[in-house]
Nucleic acid binder design. Structure first.
Lengths: 329, 329
DNA sequence: TTGTAGGCGTTATCAA
DNA sequence: TTGATAACGCCTACAA
């Protein structure tokens, strides 16, 4: 292993003081053009990079972002967060930040992870996913004045931190309007249990689009646990019922896949639209609502760096989803 | 923010020197039982944790593991690495290690990422995934004496680093024997192009199982790019051909899903078995070969910590996959 | 068994 | 515009 290149190595080689090298890196405007170029050449030649550990000791900033990786649940929807993580890693890298992973099974465990991480690696901030009602995490971080952004609105809580989210209601409205345009009138909605922010948001988009079209939604909505099996049995019942729907807007690809199974063999074939554009949707040819994950990730990084730089502590971003049209509706 | 708790805070509060606190943490056996309990009580009370930055400056160890997160490709098989990442995060945490993410599009970019990371955050080691022939990464790391483990054998290269892998041949043999047991005789194999280690390995298992059963594999193997569309058209051709297979062992769930589409409507219905137990397989009811990812992750951590502690530089672990039986075969 | 001194590599302060 | 010096928090010698 080549002996370590430190700021001193560079300084000596360039014939300047270590402070000058540090300035070239952190405050280039303080250094004379000529000196700067000279020092930069040595830096490039030696492939010098400042040690994060030393830098952090002095500056207090780790350039680390903590992100939770969830245990693989259902596997269909969980995939969404994995794709988000990919995008976030790249967006963070562009801002000079690295992602550090931790796992936790619930809010309380996640808060313990914060304590642990903050006291040892001291990440500069966190990106939280899957916000929900009575979310204990935001309050804790706010209280400790730890910078963070959430992917997901602060459901039912005041707007006291930066967040990025995708307009779920706009997504289901998009899906509903497409089905209306195709001539459907009895368009059902299949979602997860009411009370969760995301679930209600997606239902409201369908509801609004139906009402805008002058249609009554009576009896056309069902709420079941977010699994393929529950989706299938609920869709079967809906299709079988009197005045059953001819098309179904689903709040997730898991439910939509259940509905996709339930519709086979029926005549005429009911339309089904899912949500999240997961690999499963692509694989079976399910029309679905897609979230702009790359944009979400970029916005998260932008808002978080904003907070780190002491700007705009409660800005937020709401992005529009779009429809990916395949065979099912 | 509560003012920072350092080793001095703890020392003062416990009425001992900082050295004693450090010893309680790092060499408890040097400290008298009574003193140790006393100091530990203060540590717990204050929630003290040693600063990684300071610790790393002294000890040179970051307790960080670098892991590449790949751009989401096909989405079906890429999911495997995401699940592995979940397991790895947890296994690493149990060993007091944290995962730091980076992304790279090819070997060269990944090596640049190593240089970058090693010079700034200096992770203690790396976990590499997706090893392949002429893999430039292992050689580079070996040369720089950077500790690492691979999930994947050193295909075609000498056994000069620790690795963990799943026996792909055993997996396809398992699948083939199941089909043989169900009475099939013309069992085809659908895999990705030959020459890649993983691809050949999985083909060999099918081949061996066929020969063991006294059956000739002539004309029963096809190799196409690893996508659903290629899988579908190849499977269609195979099923349509003279003496076409009545069952298909596939080297991935992507190919198997293609075959799953191709088989519908045929009489009798051909059997199809996939590989990797991805969410898509679960969703459509595909029988598939599952890799023990939690065990792989644990083994990776065990081998890597072994290297970090200066032990067993070339140990390796080959794990057995198992069959997840669903509807398709 | 406990305490003291020094240094890891960097950046902020201040002086030149 | 540049340079010397101190300090961040910890751990390893070494001394008591």
């Amino acid at each position: 292993m080549a002996s370590k290149v430190t700021i001193r190595t560079v300084a000596r080689r360039a014939g300047v003081s270590v402070q000058t090298v540090s300035n070239v890196l952190n405050s280039p405007h303080l250094v004379r053009q000529e000196t700067r170029a000279q020092v930069q050449a040595v830096i490039d030649e030696l492939g010098y990079r400042a040690s994060q550990a030393a830098r952090q000791m002095r500056s207090g900033r780790s350039r680390l972002i903590g992100v939770r990786i969830e245990p693989a649940r259902d596997g269909i929807n969980g995939n969404l967060l994995d794709r988000f993580l990919h995008e976030l890693t790249e967006a963070a890298a562009r801002a000079g930040l690295r992602i550090m992973l931790y796992s936790a099974v619930d809010d309380a465990a996640e808060i313990r992870a914060y304590e642990d991480l903050l006291a040892s690696y001291s990440p500069d901030g966190f990106v939280l996913t899957s916000t929900h009602h009575d979310d204990a995490r935001a309050g804790w971080l706010l209280d400790k004045r730890v910078p963070f952004v959430t992917f997901g609105r602060p459901w039912g809580a005041p707007d006291s931190h930066p967040w990025v989210d995708v307009d779920g209601a706009a997504g289901t409205a998009l899906a509903t309007r497409r089905l209306l345009g195709a001539g459907h009138r009895r368009i059902g909605f299949l979602g997860s249990p009411e009370g969760a922010g995301v679930a209600d948001d997606r239902r409201d988009g369908w509801l609004a689009a139906m009402r805008d079209a002058g249609l009554g939604p009576a009896g056309l909505a069902r709420h079941v646990p977010d699994t393929v099996a529950d989706g299938e049995s609920a869709a079967d019942e809906m299709f079988d019922g009197p005045d059953g729907p001819t098309a179904l807007v689903c709040a997730s690809d898991s439910l939509a896949l259940g509905a996709w199974h339930a519709r086979t063999g029926r005549e005429p074939l009911p339309a089904v639209i899912g949500f999240d554009d997961t690999p499963v949707a692509r694989a079976v040819g399910l029309t679905t609502v897609a979230q702009p994950l790359a944009e979400v990730a970029q916005a998260c990084v932008r808002l978080l760096t904003g907070v780190l730089d002491g700007r705009a502590p409660t800005e937020h971003v709401l992005l529009e989803p779009h429809l990916v049209v395949r065979d099912s509706g």
